[in-house]
C-alpha cells in the first residue's frame, strides 16, 4: 500500500490541519510520501519528515504560490511516478479544488470531506456525513489511486515517528499539454478578510450571547471565553437588535446559518428563528437559568446557572485545561 499526502500549506506552516492530515494517512498501512508543491522552511520540512517515510519538496517556476493548473500539473507528474494507491489532501480551498482533478489525471477515483478512513480488502473506505448531517455514509473507492480530501481537523495529531523520513528536493519541469495549460487561469489577487477571523458560517467553535445578557458589557466577558477557546463570537437577533453587537454576528433564520463543531449558547432562550440558524451545529450546549428554555431541547448537555456566576470561573478553568 503506497500513500501520498499532498501538503499545500498556503501558510507554509506545520499547522493543526496538516498534523491531522498526516495522522489520518499514518492510520493506514504502508509507505507514506509527503509531497509539498512549493517552498517551505526547513523546520516545516523536518516536521513533515518526522511523520512520513519520505518528503518530496517540489520546485518549479512560479510554484512559490498556488496556481491551480501549475500545481495540478506538478502533482500529476510527481504522483504518477510514485504510482500510489491513496492520495490524501487537507480540507482547504485549494485541496478541495485539486482533489477530483488529480483523481481524473491519475485515472483514479475521488471523494471529499472524509471524517474517517479505513482499509477494507485493500480498498479505501471513507466515512462521511451526507444529507446535511442527517445520515452517515461509508463509501468504498475501488479504483487506484483513491484521491481524498479529509476533514483534517477531525483527526488527532500523532507524535513524530522514531526515525525521520528522507527529504528530497525535486525540480519539476512541465512539458506538453500540461505546460501549455498553465496560464489558462491565474490567481491575480488574494484577499484575507481581517486576518485571524473566520466567517461565522465556517467557524468550528462559536460562543453566542443572547437577550439574557442584558447589555453590551457581558459580551466583553464572553470575548475572553471565546479567545481562550479559540472560538468566534455570535449573537441572537435580540442582542443584535438591541445594538449590543454588530448585526453581522446574528445567527438565526434571518441571520447566519452556522455549522460549528460546538455552539455555546449563553443566555439565549432559543426562539425558533434562532434554532433554525444552528440546526447544523454538531454539538450545542447552553448556559441558562431557565431549565425549560427551548434551547436545552437542542443541547447535548447544558448548565442551568446564571451566566454571571459562570463565565468568569469557566474561562479560568478552560484556560488551565487547554494550555
Amino acid at each position: 500500500m503506497k500513500s501520498i499526502v499532498v501538503c499545500l500549506m498556503p501558510g507554509a506552516k506545520f499547522d493543526k490541519p496538516t498534523a491531522g492530515l498526516l495522522a489520518a494517512a499514518r492510520g493506514l498501512d504502508g509507505q507514506l510520501t509527503v509531497i509539498v508543491p512549493g517552498t517551505v522552511g526547513d523546520d516545516t520540512t523536518a516536521s513533515l519528515a518526522g511523520q512520513a517515510d519520505s518528503v518530496i519538496v517540489c520546485e518549479a517556476a512560479g510554484l512559490s504560490e498556488y496556481q491551480p493548473e501549475l500545481v495540478l500539473g506538478v502533482l500529476q507528474l510527481v504522483c504518477s511516478d510514485l504510482n500510489p494507491d491513496i492520495v490524501l489532501l487537507a480540507g482547504d480551498t485549494y485541496s478541495q479544488e485539486l482533489t477530483p482533478r488529480l483523481a481524473g489525471r491519475l485515472g483514479g477515483v475521488s471523494a471529499g470531506d472524509a471524517q474517517s478512513l479505513k482499509l477494507e480488502n485493500d480498498n479505501l473506505r471513507v466515512t462521511r456525513s451526507v444529507y446535511g448531517g442527517k445520515a452517515t455514509a461509508v463509501v468504498e473507492l475501488r479504483s487506484k489511486p483513491a484521491v481524498v480530501w479529509v476533514r483534517a481537523r477531525s483527526f488527532a495529531p500523532a507524535a513524530a515517528r522514531d526515525s525521520a523520513g528522507s527529504i528530497e528536493k525535486r525540480i519539476v519541469e512541465l512539458a506538453g499539454e500540461a505546460a501549455k495549460s498553465v496560464d489558462a487561469t491565474k490567481i491575480v489577487e488574494r484577499h484575507e478578510e481581517s486576518t485571524g477571523t473566520v466567517r461565522l458560517e465556517d467557524a468550528t467553535l462559536i460562543v453566542a450571547g443572547g437577550r439574557g445578557l442584558g447589555g453590551p458589557e457581558p459580551f466583553e466577558e464572553l470575548k475572553k471565553l471565546a479567545v481562550v477557546m479559540g472560538a468566534q463570537q455570535a449573537a441572537s437577533r435580540a442582542a443584535c437588535d438591541a445594538g449590543w453587537v454588530p448585526v453581522q454576528w446574528q445567527v438565526g433564520q434571518t441571520g447566519k446559518k452556522v455549522a460549528p463543531e460546538l455552539y455555546v449558547a449563553v443566555a439565549i432562550s432559543g426562539a425558533s428563528q434562532h434554532l433554525m440558524g444552528i440546526a447544523d451545529a454538531k454539538i450545542v450546549t447552553a448556559i441558562n437559568t431557565d431549565r425549560d428554555a427551548p434551547i436545552f431541547k437542542h443541547c447535548q448537555f447544558g448548565l442551568v446557572e446564571d451566566y454571571k456566576a459562570v463565565v468568569g470561573p469557566l474561562t479560568e478553568r478552560l484556560k488551565a485545561l487547554l494550555s
Binding site: 477530483p100 482533478r101 483523481a103 481524473g104 471523494a111 462521511r128 451526507v130 444529507y131 446535511g132
Partner: peptide
C-alpha cells in the same frame, strides 16, 4: 445538498 461530494465539477473539467 444530498451527497455533498463536491467532485463533479473537477471531474467534469478533466473529462
Amino acid at each position: 445538498g444530498d451527497w455533498g461530494a463536491g467532485q463533479t465539477g473537477g471531474l467534469l473539467a478533466e473529462q
